[in-house]
């Protein structure tokens, strides 16, 4: 019975090639856009996480500090809230790090007789979601210490970036829901057209004693197949686009420090199932209307 229904569904798809193609393309476009959003979120939240781990404040010390003073300072900073670890970086160490980083421009350092860099302390914050909000006050407290010349925490913008991302995420949910409903609507409409073009056939089936289920089930299979094909096509296109784009961005911006990830198998499966659900729902709606008549 199931194979019969499946066979009929496949036959119907081929008989109504054009309508089915339109439906499948619509579904795959929606899937493409929605999963592009998901892909974006997955990767941005990963970037943010990796930045969050390295959330740090650099405190530059006044030059006249001695060993005892340093010890006191370390204690003072350590006692502040949200401070995780401290690392003292002497000015010699800072210079050699800089040299290592800029080995290709080593000519710059050739005429250097005096180390222009100050001693510094790198302060890592405890990882927490509100770190973004707290970093300002922590930095101010550190700066107020008498031994500190200046603080720097370049990643303040990361906090803003994270806020923007979460705004994006909200927009993503809204757009996702919209696409979900629009796709159901479009599937419902194409299935309605398919049924309409076959109302005579459906009527004949009823006259020879076919039940509503016998008539409906192939349409449901059709919806499920459309959903599955649409998802597969959309995801394949997304994957191809991902390969091209991520290779370029990784090279340009992150120089291998960060690797983009494609959607996880679980996520891919979820998208496939949701897409099939969309196909099924579209079918359900139009069949409900049609068989009432």
């Amino acid at each position: 019975m199931i194979t019969l229904f499946f066979k009929r569904a496949i036959e119907d798809i081929f008989k109504n090639r054009f309508l089915n193609l339109v439906t499948i393309i619509t579904i795959s476009l929606s899937i493409l856009i929605a999963s592009a959003f998901i892909l974006f979120f997955v990767n941005t939240s990963e970037i943010i996480n990796s930045w969050e781990k390295g959330l740090r404040i650099m405190a530059y010390l006044k030059p006249e500090i001695n060993n005892d003073g340093l010890k006191d300072l370390k204690l003072a900073i350590q006692s502040l809230n949200d401070v995780d670890t401290l690392q003292f970086i002497s000015k010699q160490e800072a210079l050699s790090r800089l040299k290592a980083q800029m080995e290709h421009q080593s000519s710059l350092f050739e005429n250097l007789t005096l180390n222009p860099l100050p001693d510094s302390i790198e302060i890592r914050m405890k990882a927490s979601t509100e770190s973004w909000q707290k970093i300002d006050s922590l930095a101010a407290q550190i700066e107020a210490l008498p031994q500190i010349d200046e603080v720097e925490y370049g990643q303040r913008w990361v906090g803003r970036f994270a806020q923007i991302i979460s705004l994006f995420r909200l927009a993503g949910y809204a757009i996702g829901t919209l696409f979900f409903m629009a796709t159901i609507f479009i599937v419902a409409n194409t299935i309605r057209l398919v049924i309409y073009s076959r109302r005579e056939e459906v009527e004949i089936m009823r006259l020879v004693g076919a039940t509503d289920n016998f008539i409906k089930i192939p349409f449901y299979f059709e919806g499920l197949i459309q959903g599955a094909l649409g998802a597969i096509i959309g995801l394949v296109i997304l994957y191809i686009a991902f390969i091209f784009i991520s290779a370029n961005i990784e090279k340009e911006f992150f120089s291998g420090l960060f690797r983009f990830h494609f959607l996880s198998p679980t996520l891919l499966l979820t998208i496939l199932l949701v897409s099939m659900l969309v196909g099924w729902l579209g079918c359900y709606i139009s069949l409900k209307q049609f068989l009432k008549q």
Binding site: R206, L207, V208, G209, A210, T211, D212, F214
Partner: peptide, 10 residues
């Protein structure tokens, strides 16, 4: 109704 119609050959 489908059951009824299966009594008939039309």
């Amino acid at each position: 109704i489908p059951q009824l119609r299966r009594k008939f050959g039309i």
